[in-house]
Amino acid sequence: MRKDICTFLLVLMIAFLLVQGLELSYEDKEDSEVDEYYKEHQEKTGADNMVEAILLDFRAYDTFGEVMVLYIAIAGVIILGKIVTGDDQS
């Protein structure tokens, strides 16, 4: 019973924080300066798709870190699978 109340209070607190953050982010949506910079300098990348232009040109370093996360996770899955199936016994 006490655990139920604690869980309910935790969820309520995080809901409050989320609502506060959403109000902040919805207020100043009109004049996003970073967005204007990307829209003005889009011709430099040569890509018409704005998401690709940001992902692979303006913020390619972030994408590199994300590719590394994917690499490490898949390496972990492969190592665990090799332990289970016993491919690595030799």
Binding site: E43, G46, A53, L56, D57, I74, V77, I78, G81
Partner: peptide, 29 residues
């Protein structure tokens, strides 16, 4: 500058990498 060469090369590299990775994960599962 002004040509999408870098986007094309990185797109194909990422596609190859994700393809191999997801296939390997499913094979091991």
């Amino acid at each position: 500058p002004d040509t999408p060469l870098m986007c094309i090369v990185l797109d194909i590299v990422i596609a190859l990498k994700v393809f191999v990775g997801i296939t390997a994960v499913f094979v091991y599962f």
